[in-house]
Design a protein around this nucleic acid. Structure first.
Lengths: 347, 347
DNA sequence: CTGAAAGCGCTAACAG
DNA sequence: CTGTTAGCGCTTTCAG
């Protein structure tokens, strides 16, 4: 070894052929040893030894090309900085753990272009399956994947008209429970800060909110004075809350449709000198590290981990050839009442 | 189209050959069109049209096999639920954004087995490069990757004796600044909760802490009464803090070597009825969504995004064949003094 | 500028 | 149980 400055130590790549030659068998036999084919123990062992000695590492590209299917699955999420999705990712990983499939994570950053690119990668790399929390209900195009027969599971957010298995939350019911609780606690001007238009989750949570209002006050026209669409991020929540507070008659409670926006909302409230439960705050999804927040926050709790786990189980079933009819699994959310919704009069 | 229940619509896969036939050219020409070779505009266009009409999507596996290098890079992180690493990931993505390379994220979960598996995948998939925040200083084996000439950049944590480019923080200096500040603020029994033994970052931050203590009190023997090793997670921080508080003479301040452990520490303090700055708390790395915490937390601020960005830039340079000598880039941390270290007497 | 042909490394028939 | 053979779909010489 005598490498001049900057040169790379690139050892000759060891192939299955090299191992075969060294072990005195055919390439096919080596392949069998590594894929559980029938091989005499003695031979198998000498192949193992030869492989180890040469430092053989199988070329997964060649293998996948030949088999027309790789052994990795992609998980596409819209915001890697949102603990809801990282927890979901953990669920997916843990489920895949017990198989020979590896999970790779792709962050679309709520950007449909990035998402499209990752979808192309998944298709081009012949991935074994894809779990996707779609950046958009309309622009996310699962068509090519589906056409090629790649198993796809939609999680959390459902692309419109996609013929895929899906796992999601009972968003509408959760939103309804949230606002119903705020009403019962005595709040009267209840705002809703929901996500971007066109995200199924935004729409459903808002729909639940409206439905609770309508049920409580059938006489009133339900208008959108207290409804804001934001971006599911901290800044969006902050801006929306500031805007609501500048109204001639500001809301006395707010249902926030996701965890990160709630953080922005809390900032805006503090800035305005307001403290729950004087103003009611209810979050769809626990704020990350909720133990840090005082007073404690009421929230609709979401089984994010189970969402991922269930999606992965469904996907694995499809990959193994399960041909059950398409299904949508809806996971239940639960309202957790804490201090922040104690009522406008204070605790 | 007449699919019986459960059957999949698997259209015949369109290859470059099909496109060639449809456009009346050779496969080579189609390839050139998609890879920027020299082709007459007229021909190029008819190829494009044929490709679009047939719904051609290049098989990236075949392409990578042939080229002996894929066009994705892997980012291996030890804890996807830690905002420090997700922010780092964003930095990597943004840097890769401007190239034709895609980033896939792999979460090793501080588990050296999972990590080894991902490293094998990266090798077997002939990935263009790997950025790794190692789960272990000793067990993380970058050897095979390096032997095959795959560019590797170590980020945040450095595997021992690995001959790779590295980007890291000035952990030692940061730890020193932290404890020096606590001393100056008047605290006297300063604890340190650091990460697991064998992580370079744990050791360095602790070394900085010790060095500050030694400098301030050359007469005292520095012992480990107030030093705890935990796991860089919330629970670990909580347990370590509880343990410290049970000492006959508990500490009056604590330097916590990462953000998540600080959350556990704050919980333990609240549980014990203690509030900063009566007990000083200084975190290495801002607690996520620090705006939620009152009193506000002093912290050593870390350029996590830039860490990722710098690592990616370095990697991209190597991938493009840059043969500069190996380098280690150290990024600067800055102490941000806030309320939680106001001194033992109170603010 | 274009086509023909070879082959990346592996696995899946098919014989033996 | 084992070897031979034929590709998977693409890029890249090498001629023309």
């Amino acid at each position: 070894m005598d490498l001049t400055h900057g040169e790379r130590a690139r050892t000759q790549v060891v192939t299955i052929q090299d191992v075969a030659r060294a072990a005195g068998v055919s390439p096919a036999t080596v392949s069998r040893v590594f894929n559980g084919g029938n091989v005499t123990p003695a031979r198998a062992q000498s192949v193992q030894q030869a492989a180890a000695a040469l430092g053989f590492a199988p070329n997964r590209l060649a293998r996948s090309l030949r088999k027309q299917r790789s052994s990795v699955i992609a998980l596409l999420i819209p915001d890697i900085e949102n603990p809801f999705f990282t927890s979901l990712a953990r669920g997916v990983e843990d489920a895949a753990q017990r198989t020979s499939l590896s999970v790779v994570l792709c962050n679309s950053d709520e950007d449909t272009d990035k998402e499209r690119r990752y979808l192309e990668v998944a298709l081009g790399e012949q991935m074994a399956g894809v779990i996707v929390a779609a950046a958009s209900q309309d622009e996310t195009d699962l068509g090519p994947l589906i056409a090629r027969g790649v198993p796809v599971v939609a999680v959390d957010r459902r692309p419109r008209d996609a013929e895929v298995d899906a796992v999601r939350l009972d968003d509408r019911h959760g939103g309804e429970a949230a606002t119903r609780h705020l009403l019962r606690a005595g709040y009267r001007r209840i705002a809703c800060i929901t996500g971007p238009q066109g995200a199924s989750t935004s729409e459903e949570r808002l729909a639940g909110h409206r439905s609770a209002l309508r049920a409580a006050r059938p006489e009133d026209a339900v208008d959108d004075t207290y409804v804001r669409h934001a971006d599911f991020r901290v800044e969006g929540g902050r801006a929306a809350m500031r805007d609501l507070l500048s109204l001639p008659e500001p809301p006395d409670a707010v249902f926030v449709a996701n965890n990160l926006m709630t953080i922005g909302v809390l900032d805006a409230l503090r800035e305005a000198g307001l403290t729950p439960p004087g103003i009611g705050v209810l979050s769809f999804g626990d704020v990350p590290w909720a133990s840090l927040v005082r007073p404690s926050l009421s929230a609709v709790e979401l089984p994010s981990y189970e969402l991922g786990r269930t999606a992965a189980d469904l996907l694995l079933q499809r990959i193994e050839g399960g041909d059950a009819p398409l299904q949508t699994v809806v996971l239940r959310t639960t309202l957790q009442v804490r201090e922040s919704t104690g009522g406008p009069a204070g605790p």
